[in-house]
Design a protein around this nucleic acid. Structure first.
Length: 591
DNA sequence: TACCTCGTACAACTGGAAGT
DNA sequence: ACTTCCAGTTGTACGAGGTA
C-alpha cells in the first residue's frame, strides 16, 4: 500500500522481505519475451534478481514481481516482542506476509510442521526448497546473537535437492592464491534446477578417493542450496571397463599446471600445493584478492584484467598496480594477438580512480588485501581495530601478548607470568622473541581491548580465552611481517607513501551490532566508495538513523565530494560535527 | 562444537568496442 | 549517433578444512 493501513502507524517502520516471481508470472513473462523476440530467462530466481538491478523503473514495474515481508529493521513508535506479533502487525498494516506459519515448542513440533509443509508444497504459487525455523521471542534472539554470516536464532531447513546424471569428461586442476591445487570436474553440460551445470569442484584428492571418482564416470550431481553444483556419487555400474582410479598427482605428472614446478604436500594438510611464489596463477589470484570487494574494492579489476596485466609484464605483484598509467591501461589487450580486445580509456580511468581510493582505505582492508595466511575479514577487522598502523601490527605487543598468554596457559603456567617472565628463564624460551626486546601487552589490557575474555576456573586462578584471534593466527601475522614477503610489503608501501590507519573512532563496543544506535546521520555529496543508498543501509544495519536534512538532533554530517551548501552551512550553524568519508567508513567498521 | 577462511559456480547486468 | 555484440564483474551461496 502507499499508506500504512494501521490505526496508529509508527513513526519509523523499516521492514524486510523477499521479492519473487510466481511460477505463473514467470511463465507469462517468458511468453511475452518470446513474442517480442527476446531470449527467455533461465529461471525465476535470477530473473527476479536481474529485474531488481535494472536501472529503468518503468521496466521493473512491468515485471510480475511480488513481495512477502517477514522481518523488521528499525522501528520507532511501536513495541513488538515476537515474530508472531510482527507478522500480525504487518498484515494489519497492509503488507503481505507469508500466511503459512506454524509455531512449535519442541523438536517434534518442528518436524511435524516441516512434514506438513512438504506435503503442501504445491499449494504455493512459487517453488519452495525448505523452511526457515526462527526463535519467536525477540528478547531470546538478542541473547542468541549472530555470527559473521548469519543470526544464531534462525535456521534454514532444506528438503532434498534435485539431482541429475551426467558424464564426467575430465578433471582439471586450478591453482589458488596460496598455491593450493583444487581439482575441478568438467562435466557434460546438464540442465538442473534452473541452470546448466558444466563444472563442479571436487575439493581435493581425498574427496576424489573417498567417492572413487574417475574420468569417464557417470556421476550424480546436485545443486547444494539450489546454487552450488556438487558431485554426489558415481554410478559405478555405468563405469567403462578400462577406467582407472584417479590420482591427480600422477595426472599432473607431479607438476603445477600453471608454472610447471614441482608440487608438494605437507603431510599435516589435505591439499597439494604449488610452492612457487612466482607462479603466474598464484600472482593472478593474489592480485584478484587484493582488488576484491571486501579487501580494497578496486572495481573493474577481476581475473581477466589481472591476467592480462601479468602477461604484459605491467604488474608482477599487487603493489605494482600503483605504477600503472592511463596510457598503458587504455591499450591493454584482454583478447589474443589475433583477436585483440582493448581494456579502454574509460575502464582504465575507472581502475586508476579505484586505486587512488585504495590508498586511503583503512588498515583492516589493507590487512585483508595483503593475503596474510589465516587472515580474512573478521581477523583483519579485529587487528585493524586494535592497531594504529602497519608498523604497529608488524611488531605487535598485542599479538605477542595473545601468543604468550595462550602458550603459558598451555604449559600450565599462570597467564600473568607471560608478561613478567624474564627472557633467560625456561619460560622465556617458549617464545621466538626476548622479553627485553619488546613490550608484550598484559592479559588485563588485552581483555580491555576485547581480544581476550576472562574465563573461570575452579581454583580461582586467572584464566583467559581468546575472542577472535587465537595464538596460531597471531603468530601467523607476526611471522608474515618478520619474513621476506611482509618486509617487502612494508618497504614498498613506505615508498608509495601509503600508510593505512586503524584504531577505533566511534565503535567502542564492537561485539554488539547496534554500535550506531541512537545516532543520526545526514549524508551530503557523493561518497567515493559506495552510493548513498548503500551507505544509508549500512548505517541502519548498525542501528543508526539516516535523516535527509540537518537538525539539532543530527549527530554527524557525512560530507563526500561536491557537498550540498545548505547542509554544511546548517551543520556549522547548529554545531553539528562534520566527518569525511574516511571517518565515516571507520565508524561503520568497514574492511 | 562453533565458526572463520578459502575456493568455487552461476547468470544477469553493465559498459566498452565494433559495426552500421 | 545509434545499435549490437560480447564478456568481465558482481553478488550470492555453500562445503571442506582449519582454528578457537
Amino acid at each position: 500500500p502507499l499508506r500504512l493501513m494501521a490505526e496508529n502507524p509508527p513513526e519509523v517502520l523499516e521492514v524486510r522481505g523477499e521479492v519473487f516471481m510466481s511460477r505463473q508470472g514467470f511463465v507469462r513473462l517468458n511468453e511475452q519475451r518470446a513474442d517480442g523476440g527476446e531470449e527467455p530467462f533461465a529461471n525465476a530466481r535470477n530473473a527476479t534478481a536481474g529485474t531488481l538491478k535494472l536501472l529503468d523503473a518503468r521496466i521493473v514495474a512491468r515485471r510480475p514481481l511480488e513481495v512477502i515481508f517477514y522481518a523488521q529493521g528499525e522501528i520507532e513508535g511501536i513495541e513488538l516482542h515476537t515474530q508472531q506479533e510482527l507478522l500480525l502487525f504487518l498484515r494489519q498494516a497492509g503488507l503481505r506476509t507469508q500466511d503459512w506459519l506454524r509455531t512449535a515448542s519442541d523438536f517434534d513440533g518442528i518436524t511435524a510442521a516441516l512434514q506438513e509443509l512438504q506435503q503442501n508444497k504445491n499449494r504455493f504459487s512459487y517453488d519452495i526448497d525448505g523452511a526457515v525455523i526462527k526463535v519467536d521471542s525477540f528478547a531470546q534472539r538478542e541473547l542468541l546473537g549472530q555470527t559473521a554470516r548469519a543470526p544464531s536464532w534462525a535456521k534454514a531447513y532444506k528438503y532434498e535437492p534435485e539431482r541429475a546424471e551426467t558424464l564426467l569428461k575430465e578433471i582439471t586442476v586450478q591453482v589458488g592464491r596460496t598455491g593450493v591445487l583444487t581439482p575441478v570436474a568438467e562435466l557434460e553440460p546438464v540442465f538442473l534446477a534452473g541452470s546448466t551445470i558444466s563444472r563442479a569442484t571436487l575439493h581435493n584428492q581425498d574427496e576424489i578417493t573417498r567417492k572413487d571418482i574417475r574420468i569417464g564416470d557417470t556421476v550424480l550431481i546436485e545443486k547444494a542450496g539450489e546454487v552450488i553444483p556438487a558431485v554426489v556419487s558415481v554410478r559405478k555400474e555405468k563405469r567403462p571397463a578400462d577406467s582407472e582410479p584417479f590420482d591427480f598427482v600422477s595426472h599432473l605428472g607431479n607438476r603445477c599446471p600453471s608454472c610447471g614446478g614441482e608440487i608438494v604436500r605437507d603431510p599435516q594438510f589435505v591439499a597439494w600445493r604449488c610452492p612457487n611464489l612466482q607462479c603466474p596463477a598464484q600472482s593472478m589470484r593474489r592480485i584478484e584478492y587484493f582488488a576484491a570487494r571486501n579487501a580494497l574494492d578496486i572495481s573493474s579489476l577481476g581475473s581477466v584484467v589481472a591476467e592480462a596485466l601479468l602477461e604484459n609484464g605491467l604488474v608482477r605483484e599487487p603493489l605494482d598496480l600503483f605504477s600503472l598509467t592511463l596510457e598503458q591501461l587504455a591499450v591493454l589487450n584482454l583478447g589474443t594477438e589475433d583477436e585483440p580486445r582493448m581494456f579502454g580509456a574509460k575502464n582504465g580511468a575507472k581502475l586508476l580512480a579505484a586505486l587512488e581510493r585504495a590508498r586511503t582505505m583503512p588498515l583492516a582492508s589493507w590487512l585483508q588485501a595483503m593475503g596474510i595466511p589465516e587472515v580474512g575479514s573478521a581477523t583483519a577487522y579485529q587487528i585493524g581495530r586494535t592497531h594504529r598502523d602497519l608498523a604497529e601490527v608488524a611488531n605487535s605487543p598485542k599479538l605477542k601478548g595473545i601468543v604468550s598468554v595462550m602458550t603459558a596457559q598451555e604449559n600450565g603456567l599462570p597467564a600473568s607470568a607471560a608478561s613478567q617472565a624474564p627472557a633467560d628463564s625456561a619460560f622465556g624460551e617458549l617464545f621466538s622473541w626476548k622479553k627485553e626486546e619488546v613490550a608484550v601487552t598484559s592479559p588485563e589490557e588485552l581483555v580491555s581491548l576485547g581480544l581476550l575474555k576472562p574465563g573461570s576456573r575452579k581454583d580461582g586462578a586467572a584464566y583467559y580465552v581468546t575472542t577472535v584471534i587465537g595464538p596460531k593466527t597471531a603468530q601467523a601475522v607476526l611471522d608474515f611481517f618478520a619474513g621476506e614477503i611482509g618486509q617487502g610489503w612494508l618497504k614498498k608501501l613506505a615508498e608509495l607513501e601509503i600508510d593505512p590507519q586503524g584504531g577505533e573512532t566511534a565503535a567502542a563496543t564492537t561485539e554488539t551490532t547496534a554500535t550506531l544506535s541512537g545516532k543520526t546521520f545526514v549524508l551530503t555529496g557523493t561518497l567515493a566508495s559506495m552510493d548513498r543508498e548503500t551507505a544509508a543501509a549500512k548505517i541502519r544495519a548498525l542501528g543508526g538513523n539516516v535523516a535527509s536534512s540537518v537538525s539539532k538532533n543530527t549527530t554527524w554530517l557525512v560530507a563526500g565530494e561536491n557537498t550540498g551548501a545548505r547542509k554544511t552551512e546548517k551543520a556549522t550553524e547548529l554545531g553539528v560535527a562534520v566527518i569525511d568519508e574516511k571517518q565515516f567508513l571507520e565508524m561503520l567498521g568497514e574492511n
